[in-house]
Design a protein around this nucleic acid. Structure first.
Lengths: 257, 257
DNA sequence: TCAGTGATTGAACAGTGTTCACCATAAGGG
DNA sequence: CCCTTATGGTGAACACTGTTCAATCACTGA
């Protein structure tokens, strides 16, 4: 079930005398033909299994049980494939309708949903980072965020920058998250990828590292060792988000809370 | 002058009878020996000339006029080389000493210097993004930023997040800047890389694009077309930075301005 | 003078994205 | 019923990539 090439007779030799090809000719039409969607789906499964560095056209092809060159009939290049994966991300979470009284909650929910999407597939933040979010499919999202910011009362110059600031923050945060995760996984058992990296162990090691720094050179890093470790990833994300929201709120005509 | 392999006799056939190698043996000791620094230097020049996608070990080797495998005596891998380039960035700008009364100016200056560094070499933001800023060489910078935030009076939880937020913002901003630049360069004459991408032309095209959007679906994007274009990159960077600084200031015990 | 040592070489290996001449299958027309 | 045509899959090839390794080079200390 895990082997996508199970139904294609690759191992037995060609046997050139037998004129009719028994398995291939009758089974092949049974499997549904390739399509852009199926290629993108396969790309996602190999991405989740092997990460972005292991995502090659050959891997996608063997995942589908086809030849590599068959992919290029549905996808013009690997960059094109990555872009398709990128835009598909945005199909899965909702666009808020502006509600001036709740703009902060709306932005918060939107940001959390975005982060959730980026974390739903391995290395997705890296793919996201490589693409500028201005394709036609994403314009509704940009528009919606702009709507929330402007109807909340933010000046145009601030609203224009707020979207970029938010997207930059979210993508950067998840990217860094993923890098720590990879580093932790590489640190503990490398072979056993099933044993998820133990955050507690990693945190303890970092705390020890900070505590081992020379006190006269790094007094603040030493003092912060506790804080940097106790906070979970979700809490850190929320505080960074809150800093941005508070900064935006200072531009509102009415005095912020 | 542009051909780095001009002094190495690659074209003439081996001529196996002539025992003494006239040119190579006498000239080779004249050129200074390879070193880690020289490899990194060469990597920077080919990075500036061909971008990160064109930065291969072979290119670096031909830039130095040596064999590819010679590089691996001074650099353990390409990732190692990229990390050396990354850490070298931080040698070139200064670390501020905390001055509680001027913390906002200090952070602003620091951020601008950082952006300047990231823009000093092509695609540097992409390299920077791929590395988590916690190597031993960068700890002084982290410490200095923490010092500024803490002596300014920020709570520890906020100070810990502020550095990450700032670095994420700066790197993300420069990354996006570079992508727009590349896209503009690719859009206008692809062959003439000397003709720097005309920002004015690009801006006009984007404005036209926004204006061409259906008014009922994208009212805010249409309304913002002017703002998004008139602001220069430096202005946009400063406003994003200001949003973050204002957000941080709301956590100060004394009321912000 | 000679051994030793470390930097440098060229060739090789496994893998990448991409292209292209071929061919097999399915549909449609005579 | 046969023949033609087109679509899309095939496998081999090309020009790359990062990395390794035995052999060789230049140069040192004895």
């Amino acid at each position: 079930m895990n082997d996508p090439a199970a139904d294609v007779p690759a191992l037995p030799p060609p046997s050139p005398w037998e004129r009719e090809r028994p398995a291939r000719a009758r089974v092949a039409p049974a499997r549904e033909p390739l399509s852009r969607e199926r290629v993108v789906d396969a790309a996602f499964t190999v991405l989740d299994r092997q990460g972005l560095d292991g995502l090659s056209m050959r891997q996608v092809a063997t995942e589908l049980g086809t030849a590599v060159s068959a992919l290029y009939a549905h996808v013009s290049s690997k960059d094109d494939l990555l872009e398709l994966m990128y835009t598909r991300l945005f199909d899965s979470f909702e666009i808020p309708e502006p509600d001036p009284g709740r703009w902060r909650e709306q932005v918060r929910d939107y940001a959390r949903a975005w982060r959730h999407c980026l974390r739903s597939h391995r290395d997705m933040a890296r793919i996201s980072m490589a693409h500028v979010p201005f394709t036609a499919e994403l314009l509704p999202h940009v528009e919606a965020l702009l709507a929330v910011f402007r109807t909340a009362g933010l000046p145009d110059r601030i609203a224009a920058e707020a979207g970029d600031l938010l997207s930059t923050y979210i993508e950067g945060f998840v990217l860094e998250e993923g890098m720590w995760q990879d580093r932790a996984a590489l640190h503990s058992g490398e072979g056993s990828s099933l044993a998820r990296p133990d955050w507690r162990e990693m945190a303890g090691e970092m705390q020890n590292y900070f505590a081992s720094l020379p006190a006269e050179d790094f007094p603040h890093l030493r003092a912060m060792a506790g804080v940097m470790v106790t906070d979970s990833s979700d809490e850190r994300f929320d505080t960074g988000l809150e800093i941005i929201l508070r900064g935006l709120a200072t531009y509102l005509p009415s005095p912020p809370v």
